[in-house]
Design a protein around this nucleic acid. Structure first.
Lengths: 167, 167
DNA sequence: GGCATGTAGTTGTTGAAACAAGTATATCTG
DNA sequence: CAGATATACTTGTTTCAACAACTACATGCC
């Protein structure tokens, strides 16, 4: 067994019958490892990955704001409980709600100046963290990683695209 | 903007200043998407990703079992509360604890026959699911994805390895 | 217009993750 | 061998995510 491999990490007894299973575990594990640093960065500001992500989305929709529903759809991982996520943001005065007059079922959410300030403080540290985490990867490797990750979660697009051979 | 890209998914307003940030988001998002199917598979059996993962680890250490501490270290995402995770497994009769006689601080955990049965029932469906999820990726792509994912979370090993050029 | 259906959010409840503090046992040191 | 330190796990508490049931509003159809 190669000394630097997922198999080695998981212990001597672990065997992969299929590369698909290995890819899955690799994916989960790598995501978790990189996530840890983000959580440490967010924690002092009382943010979680989800609330930070939501704030980023809200900033991207200034100054109009957007309905709760749309927030859920644009999150990196679709959250089935946007209401309380927005509750937390509003509780921290980072966002505010407003009933839509045209369609009174809709609640439009906007980021507040305080929320924008908070994000502004995090922008540079976060970019710096990402660069530090992946500094050992070349541009070409990052590009290929991005391509493969995107393809992995979009089976429906596999037929078209870059023209790369299948199997 | 290319129609099939992370930028497209995240909405028109989103721009990536750095490929490292894009890789991070791609990673989290892809992991979450693939995770969903696992969760659906586990739910009917009352298992979460964490409890399933722990059971797999325990099965890999039959018949000796292993200390709680080691479970935490081998999990795909290190869990800081193995006690209650094992609580749940024991509550469902899927595992059992035993105080170590040599070192009475240590609790050795073993999977039960019932736990082994449960895993056995999940093995094939899980493999099938993984294959279905990534069936559109070629062998070469999966291998490259695995290599890049492993490298991404192991900056310390970047200097050595396969001999691939850096930058 | 009134009822059926669909949509947007809210609320209730349960279960699990995160962090911190505490207990029991082992090891190390003088 | 007594006290200090370290280790392995447990327990308490808070916060958050997940699932389901529910309310309010809008839309379509007769």
């Amino acid at each position: 067994m190669p000394p630097h491999s997922l198999q080695h990490e998981l212990g001597k007894k672990h065997h992969f019958a299929h590369p698909e299973e290995e890819a899955y575990l690799n994916l989960i594990r790598t995501a978790r490892v990189l996530e840890i640093d983000s959580l440490r960065l967010f924690r002092p500001f009382g943010l979680s990955e989800a609330t930070y992500n939501a704030l980023r989305i809200l900033r991207g929709h200034e100054p109009k704001g957007l309905p709760s529903q749309m927030i859920g759809q644009q999150m990196v991982s679709a959250v089935p409980d946007v209401t309380r996520l927005v509750d937390r943001l509003c509780g921290a005065k980072l966002a505010q709600r407003r009933r839509d007059d045209a369609d009174r079922r809709v609640v439009t959410v906007r980021i507040t100046p305080k929320g924008l300030d908070l994000l502004a403080k995090l922008d540079q540290p976060l970019i710096h963290m990402h660069k530090a985490q992946l500094a050992h990867m070349s541009r070409a490797e990052l590009a290929e990683l991005n391509r493969l990750l995107f393809k992995a979660r979009h089976p429906e697009l596999a037929a078209e695209g870059t023209g790369a051979p299948r199997r």
